[in-house]
Amino acid sequence: MFIFVGCAGGGTSSMFCQRIAKAINATDPNLTATFGGVNEVLADPIACIGDHDLMFAYGSIDVVRGYSAFDFGQLFDAILVAPQVKYLTVTKQKIMANYPTIVEDIPSEIFGKMNGEVAFEELRGELIMLDLLRGYQSSLQTASKNADKDIEILVLNADHRNQQLAKVFANWQRYGIRVLTETYTLEGLYQFDPPADFELRLLFGATMQLNQQDFVRISRRIDGLIVFSETPKTAFRDWRQQLDDADIPTAILDARMLEKRADVTQLSAKLTDFIQTVEFQAEATAGQIRLPKLQTKKAKKQHTLFGIISWNSTIK
């Protein structure tokens, strides 16, 4: 069972997790627990939990964001919010609403007692209730991309105010395709409440923003990638295998088609064909995530944890 305890900066949650884990190991013969920083746990959950039953991760509650929700939804069974930042609980619950992870406050009377044994005795009941609640939620939700989302395309090395693109978008609008154009940010990519209804969302950024650190998170959300380059035949060679592995349709287009003197008909045809390809694939794979394999956890329940319920964690 993976539990994240989030506070303001990670200091008090670190102390809390350390003392709780030590108390469990010292007082409960049926359980073993360990603790660690949330970034380390997310990076390598198998190594962090080892053979222990419980993994308490600590850190700033601010790490639970739109673009990290999938990571938390795949790994953590519960997110416990420290009293000093409980004003953020509702916000974090909304972020995690599409995932089975439970987000709840730690009662101040539990968190305030940095006596591990006393705190664990009081936290025991909270964990049992969260365990039951998560089991119910898990049957209703899955940690996956929304099946009913509209088409979202990342466009690199182009300006959404470009006159040639504006002509193409205007033509699409005439056919009833509502186009939403925005400047790309990772946080904005995961924004589920756009300012207007749309069928096609285009986020404009630069090649440097498609970096190795964020690639998996970007891959989880976008339906397609368009890259404008002055050398389309050789551009993006280093990325093509990763994009194929992630099953992301990609179009490498000549940047000269964006120039004022260029024939907009050719640009329109290229973009329209690509959007149709993306739409076909998105409909065929709705609700699926096709990405390079990550370390994620699935859990099966047995009736032994805390003398009542147990998690037989299988991580793969």
Score class of each variant (00 low, 15 high):
residue 215 F to Q: 12
residue 189 L to F: 11
residue 217 R to V: 03
residue 148 D to K: 05
residue 166 A to N: 13
residue 160 H to P: 09
residue 163 Q to S: 15
residue 199 E to H: 12
residue 125 G to P: 00
residue 208 M to Y: 10
residue 186 L to Y: 10
residue 228 F to I: 14
residue 216 V to Q: 08
residue 237 R to T: 09
residue 187 E to N: 11
residue 193 D to E: 14
residue 138 S to R: 15
residue 124 R to Q: 10
residue 251 A to R: 14
residue 234 T to G: 01
residue 250 T to S: 08
residue 194 P to E: 08
residue 170 A to Y: 01
residue 206 A to Q: 12
residue 255 A to Q: 06
residue 181 T to S: 15
residue 190 Y to R: 06
residue 136 Y to K: 13
residue 219 S to T: 03
residue 232 P to H: 05
residue 177 I to V: 13
residue 155 V to F: 06
residue 189 L to T: 07
residue 162 N to Y: 02
residue 192 F to V: 15
residue 154 L to V: 05
residue 148 D to H: 02
residue 125 G to T: 15
residue 198 F to S: 04
residue 226 I to R: 05
residue 191 Q to I: 05
residue 136 Y to N: 07
residue 214 D to S: 12
residue 151 I to K: 06
residue 223 D to T: 06
residue 164 Q to D: 06
residue 130 L to H: 12
residue 172 W to F: 13
residue 195 P to S: 11
residue 150 D to S: 06
residue 150 D to V: 04
residue 208 M to V: 10
residue 180 L to C: 04
residue 167 K to A: 12
residue 158 A to T: 08
residue 246 A to V: 01
residue 192 F to C: 01
residue 231 T to W: 02
residue 236 F to G: 09
residue 223 D to P: 06
residue 234 T to V: 10
residue 162 N to Q: 08
residue 171 N to E: 12
residue 140 L to P: 00
residue 148 D to I: 00
residue 206 A to Y: 04
residue 207 T to I: 11
residue 245 D to C: 02
residue 211 N to C: 03
residue 180 L to E: 08
residue 185 T to H: 11
residue 188 G to T: 05
residue 213 Q to E: 11
residue 165 L to Y: 09
residue 218 I to G: 10
residue 225 L to M: 09
residue 182 E to N: 14
residue 252 I to H: 08
residue 124 R to D: 05
residue 126 E to I: 15
residue 237 R to G: 11
residue 161 R to Q: 15
residue 152 E to H: 06
residue 240 R to P: 01
residue 183 T to E: 15
residue 155 V to I: 14
residue 149 K to Y: 01
residue 156 L to N: 04
residue 178 R to C: 00
residue 142 T to Y: 07
residue 223 D to Y: 06
residue 242 Q to L: 12
residue 177 I to L: 10
residue 150 D to I: 01
residue 173 Q to E: 12
residue 237 R to L: 12
residue 146 N to H: 02
residue 156 L to S: 05
residue 245 D to T: 14
residue 198 F to G: 11
residue 194 P to Q: 04
residue 222 I to D: 01
residue 159 D to E: 13
residue 152 E to S: 10
residue 135 G to H: 08
residue 180 L to V: 02
residue 243 L to A: 05
residue 254 D to A: 11
residue 191 Q to L: 14
residue 178 R to T: 11
residue 132 L to K: 08
residue 250 T to Q: 01
residue 186 L to C: 04
residue 146 N to T: 08
residue 142 T to L: 03
residue 151 I to R: 04
residue 189 L to E: 05
residue 133 L to Q: 15
residue 224 G to E: 10
residue 187 E to K: 07
residue 185 T to Q: 08
residue 213 Q to I: 03
residue 132 L to I: 10
residue 233 K to L: 14
residue 204 F to E: 07
residue 134 R to P: 09
residue 140 L to M: 14
residue 203 L to R: 14
residue 236 F to A: 15
residue 208 M to P: 00
residue 195 P to R: 04
residue 145 K to H: 07
residue 251 A to F: 07
residue 155 V to W: 06
residue 177 I to W: 01
residue 199 E to K: 04
residue 170 A to H: 05
residue 165 L to K: 07
residue 137 Q to S: 13
residue 215 F to K: 05
residue 139 S to M: 13
residue 250 T to R: 01
residue 203 L to C: 09
residue 202 L to F: 09
residue 242 Q to P: 00
residue 232 P to S: 10
residue 225 L to G: 03
residue 197 D to V: 00
residue 129 M to W: 14
residue 190 Y to P: 08
residue 178 R to H: 10
residue 126 E to S: 10
residue 155 V to T: 09
residue 247 D to G: 02
residue 224 G to W: 03
